[in-house]
Design a protein around this nucleic acid. Structure first.
Lengths: 243, 243
DNA sequence: ACCTGAACACCGTTCAAGT
DNA sequence: ACCTGAACACCGTTCAAGT
């Protein structure tokens, strides 16, 4: 089917941006420039997002930041979708360095859940970008794998481990989204938006008043995740090994 | 401070789009046109989103759909942010019509959680739009109020009711987001994306294999929400009223 | 192999002008 | 009171062309 020269030729002019990790000095030919590499572009993009918000990440703006033509980015990392995916993945790998602590396996599973949560809080703009791209799970990938390892320690393996992980990370993700929204919503706005008008809600005044106040999400997170983890991870076997 | 005529004059030429519900025939003057009203615009926008996806909702496209100049929309409903907010709120009110069933208060709380979930599944594009605008909570507002009422029935009032509701809706929201992402991700893509390369993960093969398969989110949702609701809503008092 | 400028097809929004 | 067209300042993306 394929004539021998047909795709070997295309590689140079068609969008490459997949392999090209510019490893060693394999190309020191005459036309060489000091030049960009994908890593530099991604690091600059991460810094831009962290400093000025997810909304600041445009191809033109990033190119200006790098002192380069907009179109150069396409050559190295592909289009905006590819850029965001690579950026989120790269950032996510930096989140999985911390030590996991806890007595029981349950504690360590919850410790990983807490790490996902606090990573998101500490890097909210990257988190926002990842969420907008539907790449939250990619962002937390390394931490999710760490959670899967702790689940295995607790005796949860195979499909059960996947289900446990998915249930826990879904809840963690929900709290993260809630937190992202809360810190964009000025409290003045919340008060009036509980109801559209003044229709009767069938709620007691104390409840109505409480709904206008923000919740303490960090403690709610702790308590709720404790319940979810406990429901999904069996009690530590070593604790009652003597029975 | 304010001279008497300064803002009365502005009302007509400044963006109105707030009150104007075009109630009765209060204006049947000479220059009157059959014309738009905000409700028609919002309904058309909802239909557009449900038919062609959240991405199809642009000011120009919606105007074309209505056979009207783009700028007319601004007069009636304001800018795109206002449009989305109004649309999501309007759609949300249609979601709260169903009957809430369940023996115990706990069951009814969970029934409302399930209604939020299945509404999102049934109207995923509006849900996607709401999520992108950070308006998920507005979308579910009426159902959240219904949940608060059921919580009160269960004896949870005031700040405790708010906290219970926020914890439950955070988890529900997390499952909804997970579901939105799952049904955009072709299964072929999932398989290769579990790992970046082939680094060792410390996971057993059966777990690794399970992670490449999708989870059954609806049943995971049921089981997880049961745990969350139980942890947050005290057991029905009437059940042991005789003790 | 790498980088560029010009061009295209979109966006949301404003505003003076019409009736 | 309502609706319009023109214009502005942005986007992401493609592509022929340079070195």
């Amino acid at each position: 089917m394929a004539t021998r020269a047909d795709d070997g030729d295309l590689m140079a002019t068609q969008p490459p941006h997949q392999a090209v990790p510019r490893s060693s000095g394999s190309d020191s030919g005459p036309g060489r420039r000091a030049g960009l590499d994908a890593g530099e572009i991604l690091d600059r993009a991460i810094a831009l997002v962290e400093d000025e918000g997810a909304g600041a990440l445009t191809m033109r703006r990033l190119a200006a930041e790098l002192g380069v033509a907009t179109t150069s980015i396409y050559w190295h990392v592909g289009n905006r979708g590819d850029l965001v995916t690579a950026l989120v993945g790269r950032h996510g790998e930096r989140l999985a360095q911390q030590q996991i602590e806890g007595e029981t396996a349950r504690d360590r599973v919850q410790a990983v859940a807490r790490m996902i949560w606090s990573s998101a809080v500490d890097h909210r703009e990257v988190t926002r970008l990842a969420a907008a791209a539907g790449a939250s799970s990619l962002h937390a990938r390394q931490l999710e794998l760490a959670m899967a390892r702790e689940l295995q320690e607790a005796g949860v393996v195979g499909p059960a481990a996947r289900d446990a992980m998915r249930a826990i990370t879904a809840c963690v993700g929900g709290f993260i989204v809630a937190n992202l929204i809360d810190d964009r919503t000025p409290s003045s706005l919340r008060r009036t938006s509980v109801l559209g008008g003044a229709e009767s809600t069938g709620l007691e005044p104390s409840t109505l008043e409480a709904l206008a106040e923000p919740a303490d999400l960090p403690s709610l997170f702790e308590a709720t995740l404790r319940a979810v983890v406990d429901s999904v991870v069996p009690a530590d076997l070593s604790a009652n090994a003597y029975l």
